[in-house]
Structures are given as C-alpha cells and as structure tokens.
Simulated scan of single mutants.
Amino acid sequence: MMSSRALSRAPITAAAVTHVASSLLTVQTNGAGFVDITGETAKFIAEANAQDGALTLFVRHTSASLTIQENADPTVLADLATVLNRLAPESVGWTHDTEGPDDMPAHVKSMLTATSLQIPVLQGRLALGTWQGVYLIEHRRRPHRREVVLQFLGGTR
C-alpha cells in the first residue's frame, strides 16, 4: 500500500474555453526520420496568446505520424526508427505496393504511432516534461511536404 506522503497534487486551476486558435504547419521532410516541431508548436502557443487550455496536433497524412519523445539524446530516435523498421519491414511482400516498397510499411508505422496528440497548456506554456519534444515522423524514404493542423482551445492572456 502506498503512503499518502508519496502523492501530492497542485491546487486546481480553471479556465473557460473562450478562445479557439488554429494554424496549419507545413513541414518539408528529408525522407524517413524524426523532425522536431517543438519550437514551432511553442511559437504557435505564444502567438495565440494562450494561457490555460489544450493544444491538439493532427497530421493530415497516412504515411507520417506524430509522437512525443526524448529530445536530449538523438540515439533514442535512432533506436525508435530501428524498432519501427523491424515491426514493419519493406521485405514482407506487402500486397499494397503501388507507390513503392516503403509505402505499406509507412502505413503500418503510422498506425502503430499516432496521427494526433493533445498537450496541456499551462500558464502560456506547453506542459511537456524536461526531456520531451514533439516530433513529426516521416515514414517514407523520399522527402515529402507534410501538413500538421495546430489547434488551441482555452483561455488567453
């Protein structure tokens, strides 16, 4: 049984949803890999004059995805790419290969990760942990232009 001393909670803050701000972030990828979009996401929150609420990110593609992951050690992202490639290799003999051998594995990787994220916004800042970053994951080998919808709902300054 856990001691009540092991738990603590900050006081409740409340904000009315008085503001909806939306933007479309276009990301040009260089091919398969992770693109850090944390800075652009934080910039959107600042420009929206966000105070408390929620940010939703949604990628408008079926062969790219979003994730929140460690932003300090790049070997984490390399290892994650290795895992995704092992889970959905090109050499399986996929039925859907119209756009090339990397297309169906890209769809599987997108399904295994996320096409949308929600991040709390507290006191005008993304409530990410110290080592967390927001990434678009390009699952195709060649460069693509990807679109991420950003939408803040909450109160403003």
Rank of each mutant, 00 (worst) to 15 (best):
R125S: 15
L153S: 15
T156G: 11
F152C: 04
V148T: 07
Q151C: 05
Q118G: 02
G93N: 11
V17N: 15
L128R: 09
E70H: 08
R9Q: 15
L117M: 02
A48C: 13
T38H: 03
M2P: 07
G100D: 12
S8C: 14
L153N: 15
E47S: 11
T75P: 04
Q123T: 10
A72W: 00
L84S: 06
A46F: 13
G31Q: 08
V76F: 12
S63Q: 01
G124V: 04
H107E: 10
I119N: 13
E40F: 06
T113P: 00
A42Y: 11
A6L: 13
T156P: 09
T95K: 09
A46I: 03
L136F: 07
A10C: 08
I119R: 02
S22Y: 03
L80R: 01
G31T: 09
H144P: 00
T62H: 00
R86E: 15
L122V: 15
H96C: 01
W131T: 11
G100A: 05
H139F: 01
L55S: 07
Y135W: 12
T62Q: 07
T41M: 00
A42C: 04
E70M: 02
L126G: 14
L57R: 01
Q28M: 02
E147I: 00
E99R: 03
A21V: 03
H144A: 02
L126D: 14
S8L: 06
R86V: 03
Q118A: 13
K109I: 02
V134A: 07
G100V: 03
P105T: 02
P101A: 04
A15H: 15
V134K: 06
T113C: 06
V17S: 11
H107M: 08
E99S: 05
P101G: 00
E47W: 00
V83M: 11
T82K: 11
L57P: 05
L7W: 04
V27I: 12
Q151E: 14
R146F: 14
M1D: 13
R145Y: 07
P105I: 00
S116N: 12
E90I: 02
V17E: 13
T115E: 08
S3G: 09
Q151L: 01
L84E: 12
L126M: 14
R140E: 04
A50Q: 13
M2L: 15
R145L: 05
P101R: 02
S4D: 15
A21T: 14
H107Q: 09
A81C: 03
L126S: 11
A32Y: 14
G154K: 05
G93P: 04
Q123P: 01
T130A: 13
H144N: 05
L112Q: 06
P74Q: 06
T115F: 09
D36H: 03
E90M: 09
G93L: 00
V17A: 06
L7Q: 13
T75G: 02
V108G: 01
L153V: 07
L87S: 10
Q28C: 00
Q132E: 10
L84N: 04
D102G: 02
D73P: 00
M1F: 08
I68Y: 10
